[in-house]
């Protein structure tokens, strides 16, 4: 859980005057803390697409990747289930056109298969410091608000108890042919998200959404790290 190199990624972004990390940078920070993220390559030249796609393996997902881009779905910057080099290059062209010249690149990413989407995150409470969130992810995060928090540092028991606290806790059990989620792995991820909050003061907020259960294994599919947004006391 060393986080080696994570601080450098954050510092570089701050030096560039940025308030967010791109999805790719965000995942690099997570990966340095041992949190499982999608396998992916950032591609900045059209001719590199086939090679990157081959390394990741089909089918794959491609996304516009820039620190300035939010709402990728709404802007048509996510292309899924690409099955060959031709489709990948076509997607590259479409994404680049949609980015309107914003700096950044295109992420070539493994397509994680799983019907269950979770959310994890970190926010700073004025009174209690970094607090870790866990709950239902994807579109349900905003619709159901079925989430709970724990103050960092999380003990293992704290993280496990979060999984029993949300109303939708049954989603973690074995059901309809799906395996029970790996709760130990989920707990481990939550502990590590809290660790990032304790280690990196410049990280103001983190969203990991969705965290998809691929079988029983959780993988962070999209990530957003917000840096040092000025906060006022409540």
């Amino acid at each position: 859980m060393s986080g080696n190199g994570a601080a450098e990624i954050v510092e570089k972004a701050l030096r560039e005057g940025r308030r967010t990390l791109s999805e790719h940078e965000s995942k690099q920070v997570l990966a340095r803390y041992g949190i499982p993220v999608t396998r992916e390559r950032l591609v900045e030249r059209r001719q590199d697409v086939p090679k990157a796609a081959g390394e990741i393996g089909y089918p794959l997902v491609m996304k516009g990747c820039s620190a300035g881009i939010a709402h990728k779905t709404e802007r048509g910057l996510i292309h899924v289930d690409l099955r060959n080099a031709g489709e990948a290059v076509e997607a590259y062209d479409a994404i680049l056109a949609g980015m309107n010249g914003e700096p950044g690149g295109v992420l070539v990413q493994e397509m994680v298969r799983g019907r269950r989407e979770l959310v994890m995150g970190m926010t700073r409470d004025p009174q209690f410091g970094p607090c870790v969130m866990f709950g239902l992810g994807g579109i349900f995060t905003e619709i159901l608000h079925d989430v709970c928090f724990r103050r960092a540092p999380l003990e293992r028991g704290d993280a496990l108890s979060m999984m029993g606290e949300i109303r939708g806790r049954g989603i973690l059990d074995a059901a309809r042919g799906m395996e029970a989620a790996d709760r130990d792995r989920l707990a481990d991820m939550l502990v590590r998200v809290g660790r990032i909050g304790l280690d990196l003061d410049a990280v103001a907020e983190i969203d990991l959404n969705p965290v998809i259960l691929a079988g029983k294994n959780p993988v962070v599919v999209d990530a957003l790290v917000i840096l040092d947004v000025p906060r006022r006391k409540l």
């Binding site: 970190m122 700073r124 009174q127 209690f128 608000h145 928090f149 957003l224």
Partner: peptide, 15 residues
């Protein structure tokens, strides 16, 4: 003033 979903849901009552 928050930018992420996590922070928007982490109001003082819930925390």
């Amino acid at each position: 003033s928050v930018a992420s979903h996590t922070a928007s849901m982490g109001g003082s009552g819930r925390i």
